[in-house]
Design a protein around this nucleic acid. Sequence first.
DNA 1: TATACTCTATACTCGTGAGTATATTTAGGG
DNA 2: CCCTAAATATACTCACGAGTATAGAGTATA
Lengths: 215, 215
Amino acid sequence: MASRQARKSIPKDGVSLWAPVNARVRDRERKRDAVILVAARAFRERGYHNTSLDDIASELNVTKPTVYHYVANKEQLLFECFRAGLHQIMEAFEQIRNANEDARTRLGAVVTRYAEAITSDFGWCMVQAENQDLSPAMSRKVKALKSEIDQGIRQLLKEGIADGSIRDCDAKMAAFAIAGALNWIAHWYRSDEPLAAAQIAERYLQLFELGLRPR
Amino acid sequence: MASRQARKSIPKDGVSLWAPVNARVRDRERKRDAVILVAARAFRERGYHNTSLDDIASELNVTKPTVYHYVANKEQLLFECFRAGLHQIMEAFEQIRNANEDARTRLGAVVTRYAEAITSDFGWCMVQAENQDLSPAMSRKVKALKSEIDQGIRQLLKEGIADGSIRDCDAKMAAFAIAGALNWIAHWYRSDEPLAAAQIAERYLQLFELGLRPR
DNA sequence: TATACTCTATACTCGTGAGTATATTTAGGG
DNA sequence: CCCTAAATATACTCACGAGTATAGAGTATA
């Protein structure tokens, strides 16, 4: 996706000639990110279908064609918001990939980062970028990415069952339950919520790990 | 909400004169229910904003004004779908109200019936009747009703902590996690799902009750 | 049988919002 | 200093869909 123009002339002194171009590219990317961020907030507050591109443009103090200069259409805008949120969760998996702790502990780390992503500006889009809002092509993409997350959790559960840190259980259903509980945070979380994401994750983990039945 | 017309003349022979009127009322109610059911299915499949009232009408083999003869507007139609789903969950609470089992067991019963409601045709609407789709007035109603459910679960948790059947925990967050996991079923459940609602509930309960950590 | 009410259809209105054609400004590169 | 491309705006088009005005058909009741 990175721009590939301006490759014609050879830089005479290393980077200096590239700098302005890079600055421009960076500038464009920063603006594009701003569009996506504002859109994400608007979608979260008013919903996808109740937010017009005129709304988003005016919140950015620009007009609609400017928005279209950065994204192809409304659908792609939602997709970018979705991807931004998803990215944070993917990172969580990256970070625990080569930690040498038991799987239950690693799952705990993922859950915490997951909660943080869900409570971010992009959380709502991540959860709500539902199939019905997207074209079949986009829908497939979204589904595939969501499935990766699901498989990641499921995998951790299986590893935990194997290494003895997790009780034997239906990994598929457990993954659905955990992801569901986390995703649902996007429905009730407001910025004035007294509990921070990490604290919410802590309580959730206590439930998931220890269960309701007294030990 | 029950019709109150036809109260002017005194029935001469008990019910017989009332019968046709009642039949008519029943007929109307049956048709109204059909409208709501078809709408619920359509909303679940394609989403609220991607379903036009023309779509719903044509699935019912009628035209739009007919739909408007049974519901005031699209928003109310969604609300009725929401209410139908919610009703099933309310019933679950009714049924366990005076069972004399410990609170954890009663919670289990609610969870099972909750799962059944969520996998029903109305499940999607119940979960997705989000604020952004409704007028402020409707939104308040929906929120109030949803809150009742939440409070019901929270109450069961507190009772369980009191009667010793549930480990001491943050009842509010636990209720959110449980409700979230259950609500999320509406996002992934399809009619070709191999597991029945009761089976899903069983796996969920195993996770919630026993926890992931081996006992 | 006349009347009134329920139910349904045809054929509209009207607002909104996605997306675009086209012009204008701004800034780099030669 | 001109030329080209990026960035932004004005001012549209166009489709879709919610909701309605109006009329007609069916049916029960007086």
